[in-house]
Design a protein around this nucleic acid. Structure first.
Lengths: 214, 214
DNA sequence: GTCTATACGCAGATAGAC
DNA sequence: GTCTATCTGCGTATAGAC
């Protein structure tokens, strides 16, 4: 095969290296030299493939972001009961996070550093499909039917995401504070696939005296 | 008053400026020039007060970290019932986060970037008082007495912190995804003082068929 | 204590040979 | 496509006057 096209192996090595560095160090902290080293090449070649640091970062960020956004669709299939959808959603999301544990911090962090740039990136490319309103309608319906406790859909969504994602963000802090090894804490994180679901299920279960809030 | 002592007004201006910059930009992204500008002085004076960037950052970080660690003591006073302690804890923690919303990201982010440095900082100064074991014992006691559902104390603690902290980390992402203005989302965050407690209270409430987990 | 001017190294980016 | 060498600007830090 003629070499008039970009060698995808090198490009992939670069992308993997960039991910590794940017995930750990962020945009400002991640140096092109480090990425070149990690990819086994030199800076010049890096710039040959990705003209600027900003462009390279863009690719890594957009890819990570699209993966970070949970699959809300899982909550919208109308076949099985609501709680099963939630169980399914949580299991899949936590499993994904377990094998991509650096993504949450990276995405959250960079969005906060430059929310404007993020907004542009998000709506600049393709408006990502967030069927949020559909999800909220579904939750409201479940509430009205008395299947779950009365709760604002916004809070339920926030709660679900929080319980899934946060432990991965706080991992290096938490396992030290709890006096655990990283291995031990990783086990705990894995248990959460069922723990979080049970917790949410109980929280949503309608009781006799439900919703005597204040 | 003789000027043989460091002018605390200038020092405070520097610290405030450093907080502002470091909170938003992190260590690598925060430039000494920006801090000097924000403090209304120049770089040279900055180095006069804090010899190096690293030293200045250290001060800001340690202060932020100590504030970020939730007051677990609130959960250990033995007077009022467990759920009231939790309610109290959540209210105080979320209120604090509301008025210091930049701290969580800053702390989480820097700890993840350099966990070793963090560990040194944490145990290098004074071993912070984390009465974690006491808290876990207390939770286990509540479980045994049947006051709350069976739950591993680690998960309960993780859940509480997650529900309190994460929304502040994800704020700029979430309010956009939900199609809300920042103001609207801020209102929602404020509601969480009661919402989170109710959610947890329900989740912990022992039911007839409680703990049929799998 | 506060400033201006400057030294110096690091990191992003380019030129040009192979 | 990949390399070495180099340019350039930025950012930390210091020197030295006031």
């Amino acid at each position: 095969m003629v070499k008039n096209k970009i060698d995808s192996t090198t490009q992939d090595k670069i992308l993997d290296a960039a991910r590794e560095i940017f995930f750990k160090q962020g945009y400002a902290g991640g140096k092109m030299q480090d990425i070149a080293d990690a990819a086994g090449i030199n800076k010049a070649l890096l710039h040959y493939y990705f003209k600027t640091k900003e462009k390279l970062f863009e690719v890594i960020f957009l890819d990570a972001f699209s993966k970070f956004v949970p699959k809300i669709d899982l909550l919208l299939e109308t076949e099985n009961p609501f709680l099963e959808k939630i169980e399914n959603f949580i299991g899949i999301y936590i499993s994904f996070l377990s094998s991509h544990s650096a993504i949450p911090l990276f995405v959250i962090n960079e969005i906060n550093k430059d929310p404007e740039a993020f907004t542009q990136r998000m709506f600049g490319t393709k408006s990502l499909p967030f069927p949020i309103q559909k999800l909220f309608s579904l939750i409201n319906k479940e509430v009205e039917q008395g299947n779950i406790i009365e709760i604002a859909p916004q809070h339920l969504l926030i709660n679900m995401i929080s319980l899934c994602v946060f432990p991965f963000l706080a991992k290096p802090l938490m396992y030290r504070v709890m006096g655990l090894s990283e291995k031990q804490f990783t086990l705990i994180l894995d248990q959460r696939k069922s723990e979080v679901f049970v917790f949410i299920k109980n929280a949503l279960h309608p009781t006799i005296y439900s919703r005597q809030k204040n």
